[in-house]
Design a protein around this nucleic acid. Structure first.
Length: 196
DNA sequence: CCCATGATGCCCT
DNA sequence: GGGCATCATGGGT
């Protein structure tokens, strides 16, 4: 079942935790590419110096985070890598969840082509392991780019479904690569799915 | 295993 | 003009 607006219109930490085990799907070029969300991070503008929209900073880039929940926020980082977020909470609250890792499910060979320009049987074990285990990598694998910014995950060809997978525990830790964020760098807002 | 580094472009001041 | 929610690579231990 596709997740609806009400799922996203909640506390960002809760949404981040509950997104683990869900399936991110992108219908692109006539193909269905999907993977289970196994790692994510919460960003909450009101109190979070690591958030792009900290302290109500509305710019052309960040305005989407203040809008409707259930919309995608895709941005380019380090000049090379796209990262995908899901906007959370009611309109007016700048917040989102960064998707940081996927376990590949459907369209694996196409993901290999997107990432490495080679089919799966030509990849090393290391390349297969690294197919979608990072925020930039998963966007490349699923062909998620700036074109997929501001899509409505309840209506468009990018969405998340609930496959009722609950057989896991959640590990909480500090977020990655936000050393500049003063006290916020220690918030335990990174969530990783761990098999029981 | 760990750490250091370069690539590269958009946003914002 | 500075900084950045990353990744792949290469060298050392």
């Amino acid at each position: 079942m596709k997740l609806q607006r009400s799922f996203y219109n909640r506390n960002t930490i809760e949404v981040a935790k509950e997104l683990l085990g869900k399936i991110l799907v992108h219908e692109t070029n006539g193909k269905i590419l999907s993977g289970m969300i196994i790692e994510d991070e919460a960003y909450i503008g009101e109190i979070d110096k690591a958030c792009h929209c900290y302290d109500g900073k509305i710019t052309k880039r960040t305005e989407v985070m203040f809008g409707q929940p259930g919309i995608s926020y895709v941005y380019l980082i380090y000049g090379m890598y796209d990262c995908m977020n899901v906007v959370t909470e009611e309109e007016g609250k700048g917040s989102a969840v960064l998707i940081r890792g996927l376990k590949p499910l459907d369209g694996i060979n196409d993901m290999c082509l997107n990432r490495y320009g080679k089919s799966k049987d030509k990849l090393t074990k290391k390349q297969i392991k690294n197919l979608s285990n990072g925020p930039g990598k998963l966007c490349k694998a699923l062909n998620i780019t700036k074109n997929e910014n501001k899509l409505d995950l309840t209506k468009d060809k990018l969405y998340i479904i609930d496959d009722n997978y609950i057989d896991f525990t959640i590990k909480e830790s500090k977020r990655i690569n936000i050393d500049y964020a003063e006290e916020a760098k220690d918030f335990m807002w990174r969530f990783v799915l761990e098999k029981e």
